[in-house]
Each structure stands twice: as C-alpha cells, then as structure tokens.
Design a protein around this nucleic acid. Structure first.
Lengths: 404, 404
DNA sequence: GTGTTATGTTCTCCTAAACACCAAACGAAG
DNA sequence: CTTCGTTTGGTGTTTAGGAGAACATAACAC
C-alpha cells in the first residue's frame, strides 16, 4: 500500500507564484507604506488587521526583497516599546511621461510619490504621438545608466490629455494634441524596453490627489482641472477610480451647462469646456496667453467690470457642472486645479453658495471645495502611479523579477 | 520541554468565524448560484477558478447548511460526464417593502430573485413613514406563521423614492412622500424583529437589472426610471453600485438640462425631472392621470401635433441628461424604465441619434439603450437584494444562525 | 462493444495565518 | 537607581484551506 511510489506534488515550479492570500497581504503592506511614506510596524498591524507575527513575517519578506527598509523608532516617545518605522526603498521608482501641446515632461518618481527628477522638454509645435514617444525615449535613454545603476524601474506611466483606453494604453482621441488611435503605451514600451501604460491625465491627477493630496483619507472625490487644452475631470468613487466600460469615464469637461451654448469640438453644444475657458479671460485681459500664476495675478490686478462679469459668468457655469456632479456622485471633496482653482480662489464664497443652493440638500451638506495640493508635481505623481500599479499588485513577484 | 502543558490554542470558539478565505469562497459560490438560479458544478469551477475538489467541498458545506441543493444533471447532453446542477434552496428568502404615494407593496422573494408573493396595500392618502412601517409590519405579521414554518428569512429591504443613507437606513428626504429624517430601517426592524435595511429605489432597481435583467453580464450601466414622483437614477460602475460618501449618489433626475428652466422642488432650476415629466404628457392628452401602459396607449393613439412636439421636446432633454451620463460614466447599457421607457419606445431612433451625435465618440460608440426587463417585479427583486446582502456576504455564518 | 472526454471523490502536501508565550525596550513611580 | 506596567517584536506550534494527482464513473462517438 504505502510502497506505491506516489509522486510528490510538484511545488508549483515558478517561485513567483505564491499563495493568493500572501500576495494580497504583501500588496496591502506595500501599498500602505507607499501611500504613507513612513509607517510604524505597530501602525501596520492596526491598519491591516493582521496578527503582529504575520506582519513581522511579511515585512521581513519585503525587506529581503529590498522593497522596504526599517529604521530605528524615531517618532514621538510614548509608553511601551517603540515600534520601528517602515519606509519604501528609495531604489524602487517609476517613470512618468506627460505630453502637452508645447512640451513633453518626463519624470522619475520614487515609491512614496517623491518626484526625484523632472525634465521638461519644450517643443516648437504640438508634438505628434511619434515625436512625443521619441522625445520621452531619448530622455530616458540619457538617464539609462543612472536608472540601471541606482534604481529598479517598475514601469512607465503616460498621462494623456484625452480619451485613453487604459487596458491597452491606446489613445482614442486627444483633441488638443490632434492624436487619434495612437497605441502610445506600446510605442513607448518598444522604444524603451520598459513596461508602459497610459491613461487620462485628469484621472491620474485625481488618483494622485486621493493618495497624497487634498483627498487623502477620503473615498469619494472629484478632480477638475482647467488648462489651456480645456477642462478635464477624474472621479474617485468608493476609493476607486471610475473607469467605465472602456476607461473613458470622467469627462466632466463636457457636462452640459448652457442651452443654445456654443458649439464644442466634441460635437455637442453648451459644454462646460467651451463656456468656461481661460482663453476668454486672457482675451478680456488683453493678454495673448500665459500660465496659471500669470492669469491669477492679472485677474487680481484687473479692475475691469467686463472681467469681473466674465468671472461671475464662468463661476455660474462651473457651479452648474459641479451641482450635477454633486448630485450624481455625492463626493466629500471637489478639487479644482489650474485656472478653475484660480476662479475659485478669487471668489470662494460665490461658488460655495451657488453649490449649496443648487445641489440637493443631502449631498451638498458635506461636500467641500479645495484647490489642488500637489502643485506642479501632480501629473508626474499621477502618471508614476500608473507605472507602479503592476508592482503594487504583486510586490513579491515583481521584486523577484527586478532583483533577478 | 515537551512536558510543559502548553494550552492548546482555543479553536476560536464561535464556529461561525471561519477563515476569511473560506468565507469568501462560500460567498462567491452562493452569489453565483443566486444570480444564475441554476449552475452546473462544472460551470462553478470555471467561474470561480477554484479547484474541482475545492468546489466540491464548498458545495458540500452549503448543502449541509441547507442553503443550496443539487439535482441530477438534466441539461442538454454533451460529451463527457454530466455535471450535477446546483440550485438555491427555496426556503431562503428575503422580504421587500416599497412605499409609494398611493400604496405600500410588500413582497416575499426567494434566493434566485424569484418573487414568491406580492401584496399591494393601497392607501387613501400619502402614507407617513410610521404608517408605511405599520402597514408593512401588519402584512408581515399576517404571513408570520408561514414565514417561520416554510422559510428562513435573511432580512428586509426597503426601497424608498428619495435620498436614503444606506448605512443606517435613514431616509434623509423623500420629497414626494413628504418624509424627512425618518429612521425607517430601525422602525421596521423594531416592529418586525427582522434585520432591515433601506436604500434608494432606483439604485436598487439598477442592481436588480444588473443581476437578473437587461444588464446581466455587464459591469457598467445606468438605470433611469420615470414615474409619477419624478425621475430616479441608479448607476452601476465597475460592477458596483455607486454610493458616494453617504449613499446619496445617483440622483440623475436632477441633472441640469435647460438654461432658465422651471424651478425644481430641489431648489435648482432646469432639472431633468421638471422638464421631462409624465404629468405634462397626461395634461396634453387630456387625461387626469394613469399608469404607464395607459400612457403608452394614449400616446400611440394620439395624433395631436402638440403631443408629438412635447414628446420630441422631452426626448431632447432626456438626450442631454444621457449625454452627460455617457460622457462621465462610459456605460455599456442605459436602461430606461417607466414613462422614460415609453418615450424611448415611441421613437427609439430619435434618442439613439441624439445620443450618438451629442456624446463623445469613444463612450457613445458602445452604449446601448434598453427598456427595463424585469417589469413589475423589479422593485421587489431590488429591495430583496438588500435583504439578502448580509446573507450573501457570509452565507455560512448566516446559515448557522438561521438553522440554530 | 471500445476509446475518448469530462467529471466527482479521496487522499496527501503545502502554506499561511492565528495564538500563546517569551524577551526586549521604554515610561512612570517609588 | 530600581521596579513595575505597558507595548512591542520574535519564536514555535496549531489549525485549516486550497491545490494536485490518482482513481472511479458516466456519457458520447465510432
């Protein structure tokens, strides 16, 4: 009976495949450390709900893989044995790429959302997808020895101002860049050798603000950015980014705000993006263009009634779009970035009052409007998050591959 | 050393507390059986991705608890050994309660979403929260011997036309019922002794259509219902109901669709609900009121140009609201119920064309408009789903409690 | 009938997480 | 300075869930 030479079950050869439960817990710990930058061991056990011993084993595994490291307990003294602090390894990093109409920006971002390096490559004219990829690939090539020597790169994330299918990283349509059906992620991946993913810029910004910015600790937020290329939006609901069937969700810039409004490039009329634009403001101010701080300065300096009226007009339309958003999403925070943040900063109570009076009582009672907190690093952090995604989903598998 | 009488680890005394992994798998299986009504064992292994042996153990456990039962493989013959079919136990059921302006409807719904019994209690006038609870409690009391003899009730779900906080089942504001800050779930729970939860009616309808109706197999859908008491909406994104910070999300009836539109009871102007209403249609038709089939019949019979124009007008506003929704959610299906379904049925291509031309290319390309599939049982099934929720999250723990 | 395919069952192995105890590090009180 | 209580990490043990392989079984095709 027992002489039968039963083959022992093969130990599932590839060592990367560990128990789903373990992988999940490792991912949980890694994400927490990533999001909080520093976290005491005791805090990790509380946040995960796992046993102390389990957390100890998990951290030990992550340390062995070189993904996190522990430091002496430096925190404020309190009763009891102090708990060591866990920090993300500074060698883990992701690359971020952000093509705009006048530049391509490339960034190197550490675990913990720390922007290590940011290179803005100004372009003479609007870059084509191929040109943007070439620029990014060239800059990355220039950093390669440094990258390969000092970092372990988990991937590249591309933030694109337009409709992007995040599943395959294809840009369906980026109107202001003039791109259509461009497989940007694949192109950049082939050009650099790094894994690459792409998504809508405002969606990534929303995630960045959720993790590190004005939405930290919240689960429901709306991010709205006003830039030279229109209004983009990203929606976080129940702690997760709203994707929709193909990842196109979140286009709040094309919310209807005005009957018989102007024709929008999207084909409809009365879109938020056409009624509320910084172009109109620059025009009234007699400026040919400029960046957000310049706009704010000029608006504050202006005493023209026409300008004041235009500000009120735009705030009114913005309030309509936000009213809709509040009624449909019931968010805790609305984050206004770019010139929308400027508009709000000029007359915060105006928008607050409009929102309170127009939105439904329940959802309106708890929503707060905030300016964006991450400033100029926002898009780099958001795009890098995309580059971190696969790593954070399976740190051990990835760590093994990175060290190998 | 080994002489030390080390206490054996207590086997975590309450037998309901089993491993999260096991609980999760049991919940997965139970939900699948519930959603599909019949599912072969082979199909379950494919859908769960678990090992055959594991699925066998899990089903055995569920059968032992009396939550599901197996039948001989009756399905269409195919190559290979036939697989037994797993069905939900007909003794597991939830109660559904739906208060409206002219009635309170109480239902008994089986696992699998089968409406076993439906009792509509007409009221002389709009019921107060207390009256609605009393009516429901009385009807349930009447069924009690039957319920306790033949069923195991997992809970009560209340669908309320208004803003409901699903966390505590409190109705924040139900304008058409005239309710404000009514702890309906607590009241009904105290009156009946059953666990009770409450949520917005349209949200529950959306979930019902997602599971059993026109949205089966999809992950992103929008449900919009037009009734005597306005327009309600429910949004399913990424397979989950959109809740928002306090569960108020989904109020698409108050989407802005018209500049200088009429004043809505919500405080704003130009809401979908005020511009698109069946009241206007009844008025033009010279009717004092009626239900949805009567409205459809009258509209089809009418040859009045004023009526035709009003239909076009309302379809136009509906298209604007749907355009917004498509741009922000990128859904696969839009389900129109009530008189909105009638409007669509009258001129499907009109709405389809408007949507295609106004919404953004990407999201518009893949969205399909459908009428609701579950008919008059829809709200009972949706509310019951709420009563099943806690059971489905932990079938074993619940099953043990139910049998005890 | 035979061969093929697909299935449920039983058994063993592996791994992960919880638990109980021990040791260490710190604050507070004497 | 010593002692005590508190909070923490570490170690060994226990439990249990899931995977895999071999076997038995059941239908279909030929």
């Amino acid at each position: 009976m027992m002489s039968s030479p039963r083959q022992r079950a093969a130990p599932t050869a590839p060592p990367s495949e560990l128990d789903p439960s373990r992988r999940n817990n490792l991912a949980l710990i890694t994400s927490l450390v990533h999001h909080n930058r520093v976290l005491s061991r005791a805090h990790l056990t509380k946040r995960t709900g796992l046993n102390r011993s389990t957390v100890g084993t998990l951290i030990g595994q992550l340390v062995a893989l070189g993904l996190v490291y522990e430091t002496a307990p430096s925190g404020e003294a309190q009763v009891g044995r102090p708990s060591p602090e866990v920090r993300p390894s500074p060698s883990i990093a992701a690359l971020a790429v952000y093509p705009e109409i006048d530049a391509v920006t490339i960034g190197l971002v550490n675990l913990g959302g720390i922007v290590q390096k940011k290179i803005r490559f100004a372009t003479e004219r609007i870059p084509s997808a191929r040109e943007a990829v070439n620029i990014a690939a060239a800059v990355i090539e220039g950093m390669r020895t440094e990258l390969e020597h000092s970092y372990r790169i988990t991937g590249i994330g591309v933030a694109v101002p337009g409709l992007v299918n995040p599943d395959d990283g294809t840009v369906r349509h980026a109107p202001h860049l003039g791109w259509r059906d461009e497989p940007v992620a694949r192109m950049l991946s082939e050009a650099t050798g790094y894994a690459c993913q792409a998504a809508n810029d405002a969606s990534l910004a929303a995630e960045a603000e959720l993790i590190f910015g004005a939405g930290a600790g919240r689960d429901n937020l709306i991010y709205l950015n006003g830039g030279a290329s229109g209004v983009g939006g990203g929606i976080i609901s129940n702690g997760m980014l709203l994707r929709g069937a193909s990842g196109y969700a979140g286009e709040l810039g094309h919310t209807f705000v005005r009957t018989s409004g102007e024709q929008c490039h999207c084909g409809a009329t009365g879109c938020l993006e056409t009624e509320v634009s910084q172009g109109r403001l620059f025009e009234l101010l007699g400026l040919s263009g400029g960046d957000t701080p310049q706009l704010e300065q000029a608006l504050r300096a202006s005493s023209s009634p026409a300008v004041a009226e235009e500000i009120s007009r735009q705030l009114g339309y913005l309030a309509i779009a936000l009213r809709n958003a509040v009624n449909t999403f019931n968010p805790e925070v609305i984050i206004l970035d770019g010139f929308l943040g400027v508009l709000y900063a000029l007359k915060p109570s105006t928008l607050d009052d409009l929102l309170l009076s127009q939105a439904m009582d329940g959802p309106a009672a708890q929503v707060k409007v905030h300016p964006a907190a991450l400033g100029s690093n926002l898009m780099m952090i958001g795009a890098a998050e995309l580059g971190f995604a696969r790593f954070l989903a399976d740190p051990a598998g990835f760590g093994a591959a990175l060290t190998a």
